[in-house]
């Protein structure tokens, strides 16, 4: 059967090109504006391609102390949080994957119920405060330690590992803990990778917990720093004076540069990790 290219095919290609353009354009535009010289930016002449390329803005951005502190804090939260979340989630999910687990059903109900109903923003805030977690690194790690969705995805994955594989280990006399670490976890690298990435991106992007639980500026993660600079408009003194001296930097370029520098890690790793995310969604959808 020959396949002809009809009008619909052409229209379809164009519609999808539009979808791709809408997804990508903001990034191209931000990069162009941040790289263009003030002369063109002020006159709104930049859309797709940078005009009068200059890198001064990035020099200013990288000299901003708040950004560096934000970067450092975010990296600490991501590394610490991902490690702990992944560790505890996989331990819990492994136990819950045992169909014979005593009270297994009741425990699952206890966990799933929290997806339906929660104490809400204020009681959670009061509780976190009463644990003395405010203005500590732990405020960014503990309140979101376990994601129920991730726990369920992992449990589903572990349940799919044939029981014979584990039993063969047990016959050789290995303990439950050894079975987990030397047989189950090595078989689970893809799901560990996926869930680890979900946690890492979640913590990298976490704005809400920082907004609620952090008042101390030296603990602010990148998201809060970007919010303050881009939306609240707290452009640092150093930058405004430098900018007015040079007359070469526009606020708009500066803000776009901040956003881009803050998103860069995600943009850089994205092409490599998106397959893992897609797998995660598909494992999750099995259970609905």
């Amino acid at each position: 059967m020959t396949k002809r290219i009809g009008v619909f095919d052409i229209v379809n290609v164009l519609i999808l090109a539009f979808v791709a353009a809408v997804a990508l354009f903001p990034f191209i535009h931000m990069a162009s504006v941040s790289l263009s010289s003030a002369h063109y930016v002020v006159r709104n002449e930049v859309s797709f391609w940078p005009k009068g390329v200059q890198f001064d803005v990035y020099g200013e951005v990288l000299r901003d102390n708040r950004l560096l502190v934000g970067y450092k804090n975010t990296i600490i939260y991501v590394v610490l949080g991902t490690a702990l979340s992944l560790f505890f989630t996989s331990m819990g999910a492994y136990s819950l994957s045992k169909r014979t687990l005593t009270f297994g059903k009741q425990i699952m109900l206890f966990i799933v119920f929290t997806m339906l109903f929660s104490g809400g923003m204020i009681p959670t805030y009061l509780v976190v405060r009463s644990y003395h977690l405010m203005d500590t690194v732990w405020a960014m790690v503990l309140p979101g330690l376990i994601s129920t969705w991730n726990l369920i995805v992992m449990r589903t994955f572990f349940q799919g590992i044939p029981a014979e594989i584990e039993e063969s280990g047990k016959i050789d006399g290995s303990s439950d803990i050894r079975t987990l670490f030397s047989i189950v976890l090595p078989l689970s690298k893809p799901v560990l990778m996926t869930i680890g990435l979900f946690y890492a991106v979640g913590i990298w992007n976490n704005f809400f917990h920082a907004l609620l639980y952090l008042r101390e500026e030296s603990l602010y993660p990148l998201q809060l720093v970007i919010r303050n600079i881009v939306m609240v408009g707290q452009i640092g003194d150093a930058i405004t004076s430098a900018a007015s001296e040079q007359q070469g930097i526009v606020l708009e370029s500066l803000k776009y540069a901040f956003i881009l520098v803050g998103t860069l890690p995600i943009l850089v790793v994205y092409p490599f990790i998106q397959r893992h995310f897609v797998n995660g969604v598909l494992i999750g959808s099995v259970k609905g």
Binding site: T89, S118, L145
Partner: peptide, 22 residues
């Protein structure tokens, strides 16, 4: 298994159920 599950359950109690009583 209960030992492995304990930290997870503790998390749910401390950060999900205590606020419900709050």
């Amino acid at each position: 298994y209960f030992l492995l599950l304990a930290p997870v359950l503790l998390y749910y109690v401390l950060f999900k159920y205590v606020p419900m009583f709050g």
